[in-house]
Write a protein that binds this DNA or RNA. Structure first.
Lengths: 236, 236
DNA sequence: TCTTGACATATTGTCATACAATAATTATGT
DNA sequence: ACATAATTATTGTATGACAATATGTCAAGA
């Protein structure tokens, strides 16, 4: 059981928080296409909030890099170039490596147990292709990992990185055979953590991310070749 | 010379951009104390802009972690706990390590030359204690480094990390004897870069950050001991 | 047919204003 | 001195306005 017996009163989320949260979700799930234009008024009607709130929410997403605002043209869903995708995976490797290393050192036995369960669940949803269930389970896995790592800053940055990676996966659909290997790698990582071996955990994590990067980048590159017809052909 | 012969028209920065930029500066320079309350209307008058713009700027800073917004109370300058400071330096180590590794691999000879000059200048301003000059020179150094590394995502995150570290240094003033060692370590790093040795550069960088962390954290801990009188004494 | 310019429309960026909800402060009664 | 009520300050959100900029249309001219 996750301990949930705190008495803390949680303030109901503000309109703006809900707005930015839902937009974030929508982008992660690929419900907006990269490069798609976003018109403020339309979002207002769509979500039933004022332009004030929408704009503030968009500012958050802009800072997070999920949205790109072109001066006097407004917000667009950020498109991730191959080079940026490479960068994202590089950053993810070092940050996630740090996180698992810390987790292996600091996490309580209970947290390790929780993580283990999360991996089991992850394996289940990995097979059944359902974007929403997949994302929420993965979020739970990382929640536990980042909590146990106890590095708030890295956690925040990783959450951002994961959303961007989700977006990538959502648009360039991921391959089922990759899923198999992926779970295997995660189990390896889990093993190192259970053995309280930070270095091994780190190595397993970095390898895992690198593999994920390889397949994702390969697909992206193949995709880009097709999608972007050489400029020359358009000029005559 | 930095090539500057592009014909690109740069749009003049918007009101909001200027607002957030100036606030960011002010926080980095320590002109707001951590924990200090920030009242929106006052900022409006202070900067001569509307509340709309101020709030959007504050949203950016909040997402960057420089400002913490308490529901229904409004924005405060974030206070950095010792634990958060540790986290910041851990993250800085891995991200900066990544950056210098990439720089050693990818940077052009010209960029290495530029970086070398930047280090020279850094040495000059290190001696003369002037917050503003120091920060701008350091910013230039990192600008070159991050440009040459060619990882946009890491660059963005590091810029954020550096601002927070600056804030730390600005409040808990840094020691002059540390400055000496610091420059030495940076020269070592530079040497490894010139030798195009990514691993050595990485090692030098990580060591440098760890040393900086050690002194900063030591001061922070000492400071915290004094500043926070045990709660017991206030209750009788 | 292609360019140019004029005009019409849509959208953004910014401001001003309003007001309920909440928090902080002060005054008041016991 | 302490609890309670009244007052004030500030936030969170919505609305309306409008100049500046970008986009789209269309007719005139080369």
């Amino acid at each position: 059981m996750t301990s949930d017996m705190s008495l803390k009163i949680v303030a109901s989320p503000s309109v703006r928080e809900m707005t930015s949260a839902r937009l974030r979700e929508a982008i992660a799930e690929g419900r907006f296409m990269p490069g798609e234009r976003v018109v403020e008024r339309q979002l207002c009607e769509l979500m039933g909030v004022s332009r004030t709130s929408v704009r503030e929410a968009l500012r958050e997403l802009e800072t997070e890099g999920l949205v790109t605002v072109v001066p006097n043209k407004g917000p667009f869903i950020s498109v991730i170039s191959v080079q940026q995708a490479e960068s994202i995976y590089q950053v993810r490797a070092v940050l996630e490596g740090l996180a698992v290393r810390l987790f292996a050192q600091r996490a309580t036995d209970g947290q390790i147990e929780e993580l283990s369960h999360a991996v089991d669940e992850l394996e289940k949803v990995y097979a059944a292709f359902e974007v929403k269930a997949f994302l929420s389970t993965k979020a739970r896995f990382y929640q536990i990992l980042l909590d146990g790592a106890g590095n708030e800053i890295a956690g925040q940055m990783l959450r951002n990185i994961h959303i961007r990676a989700s977006q990538l996966r959502a648009t360039s659909l991921s391959t089922p055979q990759r899923a198999q290997k992926s779970i295997g790698e995660i189990r390896l990582l889990l093993q190192a953590i259970k053995a309280r071996d930070p270095d091994a955990a780190w190595a397993a994590c970095v390898k895992h991310v690198e593999h994920a990067a390889d397949t994702a980048l390969a697909m992206l590159r193949a995709q880009e070749k097709q999608e972007t017809p050489p400029l020359r052909t358009m000029l005559g």
